[in-house]
Design a protein around this nucleic acid. Structure first.
Lengths: 342, 342
DNA sequence: TTGTACGCGTTATCAA
DNA sequence: TTGATAACGCGTACAA
């Protein structure tokens, strides 16, 4: 440890010489090969430590043919400021990296937003053993690009618009049911869903369906307040709230298919004098951080983020190793805050 | 394009054979070497495209000695849920990756939180040409680890407690001055700073100093409401607000050294019946997303995130290439929302 | 302008 | 249990 603190190129040959063994013995000793005797291994380890030796990963990978790396592609909206990326995706990124790390893999992260920088040939270049694509459903060009990856590409994704890609998703059906039942239990009856049944967002569709199903099995008629497309989510929520208020449709609760929409609606309704949660209850979906700061704080359905990363990684490793994955639905839970009455 | 869509291992020799040239010609043609004649280059490119050839990065790097990769280490608080990471850091991560990409570098991202997984020997292992460390100041063990990297390690960082590391930071002094002047201009006089002058958070110190300076040059006495250490930021802010309210110290405005503290204080004061922004004005620092959702929305000082990533990368590349960097202070701007009166 | 030949630092195979 | 030796696939002097 003392002395040799500078970065100098030191190879396994140097270690071999210092330990008085052959280079291949060094390789085996450090790789934990059981055929190496304990005394020899000790000598090698000691020499390696003294020389501050570290394996050159490029050489190792060249030889092995595997990289021990998973590529993570974050799809953003085109021309979107990184600051405006839904923090939900960042949490997912974090938990994905953590899950990969737990499985002994590193993560090569790239942010991609436009056709000129779409790129997914990590396996061909031997930069990674597989790829996880995380992104907003709205960047359809990106999904078109990744849908067409060559056969043999190992990958999983979060946010894909279609079921023909190797998706992992929240348990949207259960979540929406959970949300709707929560509103019913709290005494709300005229529950409107803010969202879209025809959105390319598969997730939103599923959430609407879960809501509709729960309504019907309570003997109530589902009502959908459609959002306008092409706007920011908060704005969609705000406008939907305006439309709803001005339509004359009676309502005493709102289930929004995502938290950003819920927050937009909450703000608008508050401004219009609806008292929340007494007159109108609101529940969202996603469990974003900003929900804790609204007035009142937003009740929401929160996916298990950590599980999301874990499932993405496990699904991917299953493909790489040709084994079976463990599931693609991420469990959700109800987080009760102040926007639904006690 | 047709046919060869499956991932098969194809080397430069295969391309060479297909194009009727030597392997080295392929290498040169694809690398853009000017000595190759245009017709030959065309033939090679065509063959490469047809075979779906991609360079094996491991072999290329082994040969070259450089990786074209920058490592990004995200330091988290120990045992912290990834979901609770300040979104500010994620924005920084995103802009850092983007900036690296703009300079032709890839990013190898890892999340590290505890001594058993601290690791920064990317250069020794030839996994990256340098390293960017981003993290909360509070994980002192992590900073102790990275402070001691071997000589020759190329790195820059955001969030370091000390000046002896290669830091990049917000222009805290200007920001705090900007915030304080804004409060003064809006007619507030009894301005209290919530924060700490002795915190290991260098950033917080600088912000307090900027505030104090601005107060003095307005002929006013700075007042510091010290936060308790070891708590979550919002809770620190909340408790500081309680202490302030109960101390009897007269105040009509608060400058909090970070948005989370500001939000905690805002919530507490609102609960106690202080009307914001009329009776008390509040301004924070960081420009976090949740600030837009509080009631009233939080006025804040927002660093230029994109610039932050750019400076981190530029400083690092300067070290790698032995050139001069372009600066280490990230400019900030005032974002006026509803928590300060018009 | 192009081809030949070598080496980057490992891991894996085969003998001993 | 260990050592010699052969790849892995590319980039690059040097020669032609």
């Amino acid at each position: 440890m003392a002395g040799e603190r500078k970065i100098i190129r030191v190879t396994s040959f140097d270690v071999a010489e210092a330990a008085g063994v052959s280079q291949s013995t060094v390789s085996r000793a450090l790789a934990g090969d059981t055929s190496i005797s304990e005394p020899t291994r000790q000598r090698v380890m000691e020499a390696a430590r003294r020389l501050n030796y570290q394996v050159d990963e490029n050489a190792a990978r060249l030889r092995r043919g595997r990289t021990g790396t998973l590529a993570v592609v974050m799809i953003c909206r085109e021309a979107q400021d990184r600051k405006d990326i839904n923090p939900f995706y960042f949490s997912l990124l974090g938990s994905t990296c953590a899950a990969a790390s737990a499985k002994g893999y590193e993560t090569l992260v790239s942010f991609q937003d436009a056709p000129e920088n779409f790129w997914g040939h990590f396996q061909e270049r031997r930069k990674a053993d597989g790829m996880i694509v995380i992104g907003t459903t709205t960047n359809t060009k990106a999904w078109d690009y990744f849908r067409d990856m060559p056969e043999g590409t190992h990958w999983t994704c979060w946010g894909s618009p279609d079921n023909d890609m190797p998706w992992v998703r929240s348990d949207n059906l259960s979540g929406a049911t959970l949300a709707t039942r929560h509103l019913l239990v709290r005494g709300y009856r005229q529950i409107v869903c803010i969202g879209s049944a025809t959105s390319p967002q598969r997730q939103f569709q599923e959430r609407y369906e879960g809501y509709a199903e729960a309504m019907r099995s309570a003997g109530l008629e589902p009502v959908l307040q459609q959002v306008e497309s092409g706007l920011a989510r908060e704005e969609q929520g705000r406008r939907a709230a305006i439309a709803l208020a001005e339509s004359g449709t009676p309502f005493d609760a709102i289930f929004a298919v995502c938290d950003d929409m819920a927050l937009g609606a909450l703000k608008e309704l508050t401004a219009r004098g609806y008292s929340i949660p007494d007159k109108v209850g609101i529940i969202g979906f996603d469990g974003i951080r900003a929900g804790a700061w609204s007035t009142p704080p937003l009740t929401s359905i929160e996916p298990d983020f950590q599980m999301a990363g874990t499932l993405l990684v496990e699904q991917l490793l299953a493909k790489i190793n040709g084994t079976e994955g463990s599931g693609r639905r991420v469990p959700v839970r109800l987080v009760i805050r102040g926007s639904t009455r006690a």
